[in-house]
Design a protein around this nucleic acid. Sequence first.
DNA 1: CATCTCCTCCGTAGAAACCCTTAGGGGAAA
DNA 2: TTTCCCCTAAGGGTTTCTACGGAGGAGATG
Lengths: 216, 216
Amino acid sequence: MRDFQTSTPTAAPPLYQSVRGEPIDQMGVRMTFARDEELYAQEEDADLVYRVVSGAVRTTCLMSDGRRHVGAFYFAGEFFGMESGDAHRFSAEALCDTVVTVMKRTIAERDVQIERLLWTSTVQELARTHEHLLLLSRMTAVEKVATFLTDMATRQGRPELVFLPMGRQDIADYLGLTIETVSRMIGQLQAEGFIELQDTRHIRVRTRGSLLKRCA
Amino acid sequence: MRDFQTSTPTAAPPLYQSVRGEPIDQMGVRMTFARDEELYAQEEDADLVYRVVSGAVRTTCLMSDGRRHVGAFYFAGEFFGMESGDAHRFSAEALCDTVVTVMKRTIAERDVQIERLLWTSTVQELARTHEHLLLLSRMTAVEKVATFLTDMATRQGRPELVFLPMGRQDIADYLGLTIETVSRMIGQLQAEGFIELQDTRHIRVRTRGSLLKRCA
DNA sequence: CATCTCCTCCGTAGAAACCCTTAGGGGAAA
DNA sequence: TTTCCCCTAAGGGTTTCTACGGAGGAGATG
């Protein structure tokens, strides 16, 4: 976990660094969550917006028959929890020990600068989500896993060594695969020489260019 | 096409009706596009934002090996074309004869009211996109088609008779299926008595409650 | 500190289900 | 007629489902 904590702050875009000269990390109330602790639940009132300071968060959606879907992962510097309606459509949980800042939605919407920041963040998330759509609808299993790994590497700002704060089940539910297929595809990428597993959560990318070819 | 033109304006939320007392339809420059005409292309500069006045628009993404992906459909009252970067990641085409209003992004961002409208619209689209993700990642073929039909019915504001301005290929590329599977599933829903085909583009929903059960 | 057990998570293999590919025919529009 | 799009059917491939075994961590015990 520790190397993850120290690596992610570099991923925060410069845009997010300050508002009115204040470090944006200090905007709102600081809160800490333990691994697997719930930040908010599905159907809960969505009157707060969140921003990751350190650690990582996943949003999940549970269907009535038990099928599970992971909507997104959020890392340091990223906003989440904005909803168009009154209630959260997903629940949010901490992947590891995580610090976030929390702000009332009504307060954020009263400040033009903060609102603009939120809008920029929302458009960025929309773009990421569209990429996710493309991945889910038209990629093969091995392409999904390769794309996921390069995306994680990029967002962590360290293309040669990826740390995965989430388990295999989370990856599977994010990519629309089963846990077995994820394992098989990681094994296949390793057998083909694209990646090397240091342990189950640390993956060394050998030839980034070649791995990108497996991304479709 | 005609019944579609008359039915969609009712789908526009009240929020979009006016800004500063002006009908928002008159914001920006009015443009008309013919069926299958391109509004903008993938990789093109994204310095404009669009809003559908009448008709319908699809956004598509073409992969290098020819695989095709439909990102979204937009109907009267909805904004599209906002990007986080400088370039469009998708191309946009008219599904039928379509009227849109076009506005410079820089102008939109200078007006606080318009900017807020855009943000609201973006958050709504993000929510719709998250629903689309859930559909693609964890639904079966028949659930995808059933969900698609109920979504179209809802957005057209006429739950009992759905008009599909897009072809089967567009539906398939939107749902991550093949055209044959879409046909089979529509046939299956018809055989099970949930829907009835008037012609290939007009579908009568017999028992909405039952169809919703097929949506997972 | 070593060892044991429990528990969770990860990896592998075979069978089965699901969906896609391929091929062919029909109907509407140009 | 020609062309394009849609529907149907059969075979094959990819992914999932089911089942089993191994690795590693947490906690209890001596």
